[in-house]
Structures are given as C-alpha cells and as structure tokens.
Design a protein around this nucleic acid. Structure first.
Lengths: 212, 212
DNA sequence: AAAATTAACGACCGGTCGGCCGGATTGTTG
DNA sequence: CAACAATCCGGCCGACCGGTCGTTAATTTT
C-alpha cells in the first residue's frame, strides 16, 4: 500500500481493496475457482481487462483473495476469542464466533475457507498449498487455545488437544454444508450442543461453560 | 435393463454401466459438475456425442451417476453394517465401513457424496435436490441404528439420536478433506477415536466397543 | 439373409472462459 | 501547468464447454 501526498490511499489501493472484498463474497457462493473474472468485473462496474492491471493472472487474484479473507476471519473470529481470558471460555468463544461467522448474511455461501478447501483438496498448485497452510494454522490455533486451557487448569491434563481440535473443526465443517443443504435441520443448534457436550466432558469445572 | 434373446445384457446396458462407473470415479476427483463430457468420453475411448445417445443432457447423466454411487455405497458400507447384530456394534461398524470407503484407492477424491454435496450446497436444481435427499437418508440411517441401540439396551435411553447422527456424520465429512489437504495429519485415526470416544460416553457397557 | 433397431461417430455450433493488446483516461507530482 | 505513470477500457484471441446434426457401423430381431 502506498499513500498520496495528503495522506489518502492512492486510487489503485482503493480499487484493489474493493475488488478483493467482492471477490471474497462472490467466491463464498460460486467457489474460489468457480469465480469468473467477467462476473467479478460486472459486479464491480469495472471492465474485465481492468483487473489485469492489478493482478497478472486469475491465480494471483485468488491468492490475494485468500489473504483478504484470512484477515477478515482473523478480525471477526480469532480476535473475538482472544479478547476473552485464556481457558475453556476462550475456546468456547472461538467456536461460537465461528458459528456466527458462518451464519453471516454477507457471506451467503457459508465459510469462505471451508468451501475453498473442499474445492481444492484434490487439485495441485499454489492456491491449494496456501489453503492447506491456512487449515493447518486454524487447527493449530484451536490446539493452542486448548493447551492454554490445560495450563490454566480449566481442562483435564490428559486431554489430547490435537484430537479436540480435529473434532471442533469437524463440527464447523459439517455445519457449513448441512445448514445449506438441509435448511430445516437446525445445524447451528446441533453444532453448539456438540462442542458444548465435548468441552464439558474434558472440563474440570462445569460452571466455566454456559448452562444451556 | 433389457436382455437379449440368449439372456445376455444388451450392449447399451453394458456401455451405460461402464460409463457410470467411470463417471463416479471421475466425479470423485473433479467434482460432479466439474466432470466434463469430453474428459469422460476420452477416458472410456468413446466419442463425446456417443454419450448423448444414452442420456439427454449432462444433468441426466449426473442424476444417473448419483444413483450408481448410491448403490455402490449401499453395498460397500450399509450392507456391511447391517450384517452385524443390532446395537452399538452395528453403529460402530457403519462408521468403520464408511472410513474404509473413504480410504479406497478406487475413489481417489474421497467420498463421492461429501464432495458432490459440498459442490452443490449453494446451487439449485434437480441434482442439488437429489443430493439433499441422499444426505437426509444417510442421517436418518445413522439415527435409526442409534435408536436400535437404545431399544436393545446398548445405549442410554436419554440419548438424542439426531444429535449423535449429526456428530458422526461431521467426523466423516471432516475426514474427507482433511486427509487430502493435510496428508500427514492422520485424519483417519482421529476420526476413529472421535466416534469411539463419543459412543463410549453414551454406552451402557464399555465392553460392547473395541478397546483401542 | 434381410430388415429394423440401437449405438456410435465426426463435424460443427453458440457460448463462455482466461488472457492479451493498443490506446484513452485519470490522478499524482515536479 | 506539463509531464508522467498508474489505471482502465473495448475489442479480440484461442481453448474449451455442453449440445446438435446427419451419417455410418454394429447388433438384434424377423
């Protein structure tokens, strides 16, 4: 990012930001590969070839879109959880914030990352590799928060935190597609109960978690 | 299906079966929508237009592919579980058979249905609707086997079997893409442990489940 | 063997995709 | 203001998509 003499963002940066925001929203619906440049350009009121002034290829734009979505996810999910004190409450807050993120109307297709990761799990290339890194990062974060919970004394010391991270992520992933494919199946409630039950089973004090 | 005078399958039926088998394998990798007719025809050594002699459109072929995959899944997963006596052991066998199915080398992209359901969860049309029905059918099956477990006395009577079905399915879904995206993460083992732990927690007698 | 039916083919069509190019427009700075 | 670079555009290309057409080859029935 560069700034103009009077401290504003230069035009190109504003355009890039707007394009990436729209790309995230669009990719959440149509998929990261399914996103077409013509569609993206139309939605923005911009010509298709104008996009190539900012990114050399569709792949470059996809990679930039991933980073944009990652920042947004960090602000809206990770930061919310980290604002609470370490322990099982922070872990629970992370799961809840993620469910809120999944339910957001601005991301109509559910979670950007879950969709993209499913789309690319059988492919090869830089986009797939980056998405794999992001998944690893996410699982590591859940594991780290669980480790904190053990250290603080909220969670049993014999807890396998990697196992727990897998299970919490699994619930989130299943929620994404089940809530879209079977709208009446109350996937969100099932997802809340699932993780709440799981955390209670490994918690040293049930009062640390909500009652419902 | 029709038969010839001397009792053999008519040529068209043999072709249709071969096409659908290849379509299932290909769709598991490239997706049900991502499957292209040219690719499918090439793999079979058949011309693209020849496919239109058997199905009126790509959508018709997709719907037929779903039914073929459903039959195969029934034989290889559902039938294996149903061959065991009702109870928690049957439920566990279902999960294990599904994990075996996911690990099969003939289906390189993981589970046909999980991939297809993710691909179509944001779309509309007959293909999406059929995939939603299949998901419902699958969740209902897990729920029914759990109900049997309660009736037999293997599982606690206060168990919410719909909740359990959601969780077991969630583990399977997460396994599909995590094992492909992060090959070293031993997703299969994590998936086994997750459901085993969950079943132990609601089982009346731990001896009904394997020890490991 | 002849007739009838089914199965398969090559060529082609309209449309969409990502990407390229030359030139016009705009914002920024000396 | 002039000059310059950054930004953006219309038009176009080759590749590929699903699908149609008239025709031929293969198989089944008569």
């Amino acid at each position: 990012m560069t700034f103009t003499a009077d401290g504003r963002l230069v035009r190109g940066d504003r355009t890039r930001a707007a394009v990436l925001d729209t790309a995230v929203a669009l990719a959440t619906e149509a998929g990261l590969g399914g996103l077409t440049l013509a569609q993206l350009a139309d939605r923005l009121g911009v010509s298709k070839s104008g996009l190539f002034a900012h990114w050399r290829s569709k792949e470059d734009l996809q990679l930039a879109t991933i980073e944009r979505a990652r920042m947004s996810f960090k602000e809206r999910v990770v930061a919310v959880a980290l604002s609470r004190p370490a322990g099982v409450g922070r872990l629970w807050a992370l799961h809840e914030a993620r469910l809120d993120y999944l339910a957001d109307d601005e991301l109509p297709g559910g979670c950007f990352f879950v969709n993209a990761q499913f789309e690319y799990d059988a492919r090869t290339g830089p986009v797939r590799d980056r998405l794999a890194e992001v998944l690893e990062e996410w699982l590591a974060l859940i594991g780290r928060l669980a480790d904190e919970g053990v250290a603080v004394g909220d969670l049993r010391p014999d807890l396998d935190t990697r196992q727990l991270a897998f299970e919490i992520n699994a619930v989130g992933v299943a929620t994404v597609y089940q809530s879209r494919l079977l709208p009446g199946s109350s996937a969100m409630t099932l997802a809340r109960t699932a993780v709440l039950t799981r955390l209670r089973a490994v918690c040293t004090d049930p009062a640390l978690l909500p009652a419902d």
